[in-house]
Computed example of a mutant assay.
Amino acid sequence: MSDTILGRLIGGPLDTQIIPLDAATLDAIDDELVLPWEQGQLIYRRAGDAENTGEHDGPTTVPYRFDAEL
């Protein structure tokens, strides 16, 4: 697994965005992301297993699906 773990956002205002996650291992990945947005926050929830977890296949990516805007 690469040192970088990324979140791939699906749906909502940030659809298709890739963001770095503040975690060093897959065990430290949160099931929910709360992201600032204009006058509120966006909620994205983990939506599947991590991809690219091998030694030489690029950064590990975890999918998150849009859930709500607060």
Score class of each variant (00 low, 15 high):
residue 11 G to M: 01
residue 41 Q to W: 11
residue 30 D to S: 15
residue 21 L to G: 06
residue 8 R to V: 04
residue 59 P to I: 02
residue 21 L to H: 10
residue 66 F to A: 02
residue 49 D to N: 14
residue 41 Q to C: 03
residue 28 A to H: 14
residue 16 T to V: 04
residue 34 V to K: 14
residue 38 E to V: 12
residue 11 G to Q: 03
residue 15 D to W: 03
residue 13 P to K: 11
residue 11 G to E: 00
residue 29 I to Q: 09
residue 33 L to Y: 09
residue 7 G to E: 05
residue 23 A to D: 09
residue 9 L to H: 09
residue 68 A to L: 03
residue 7 G to T: 07
residue 6 L to C: 00
residue 59 P to A: 15
residue 36 P to Q: 14
residue 57 D to F: 13
residue 6 L to W: 01
residue 7 G to N: 01
residue 47 A to E: 01
residue 53 T to K: 12
residue 23 A to V: 07
residue 62 V to R: 09
residue 58 G to N: 12
residue 46 R to K: 15
residue 7 G to A: 15
residue 28 A to P: 08
residue 59 P to M: 08
residue 10 I to V: 12
residue 33 L to H: 13
residue 38 E to S: 13
residue 24 A to C: 05
residue 11 G to T: 00
residue 17 Q to M: 07
residue 27 D to W: 03
residue 19 I to W: 09
residue 34 V to L: 12
residue 39 Q to I: 04
residue 50 A to W: 02
residue 12 G to T: 02
residue 16 T to E: 07
residue 51 E to L: 11
residue 2 S to F: 06
residue 54 G to L: 08
residue 32 E to S: 10
residue 20 P to Q: 13
residue 54 G to V: 02
residue 26 L to W: 10
residue 28 A to W: 09
residue 9 L to W: 05
residue 60 T to S: 11
residue 32 E to R: 15
residue 12 G to Q: 00
residue 26 L to S: 10
residue 44 Y to L: 04
residue 34 V to P: 00
residue 7 G to Q: 04
residue 16 T to Q: 05
residue 15 D to T: 05
residue 64 Y to A: 08
residue 19 I to A: 06
residue 28 A to Q: 15
residue 45 R to M: 02
residue 53 T to L: 06
residue 26 L to Y: 08
residue 47 A to I: 00
residue 14 L to C: 09
residue 59 P to Q: 11
residue 18 I to T: 14
residue 39 Q to W: 04
residue 22 D to L: 08
residue 42 L to Q: 11
residue 22 D to F: 06
residue 19 I to P: 00
residue 55 E to Q: 13
residue 4 T to Y: 01
residue 19 I to D: 06
residue 11 G to N: 08
residue 2 S to C: 04
residue 30 D to W: 04
residue 1 M to E: 07
residue 12 G to P: 02
residue 11 G to C: 09
residue 65 R to G: 00
residue 5 I to W: 00
residue 15 D to N: 15
residue 22 D to Y: 08
residue 58 G to Q: 11
residue 45 R to W: 02
residue 54 G to F: 06
residue 63 P to A: 02
residue 12 G to W: 01
residue 24 A to H: 13
residue 41 Q to F: 11
residue 69 E to R: 14
residue 37 W to T: 09
residue 37 W to Y: 15
residue 25 T to L: 07
residue 53 T to E: 12
residue 27 D to K: 14
residue 67 D to T: 08
residue 38 E to P: 05
residue 12 G to A: 05
residue 43 I to M: 03
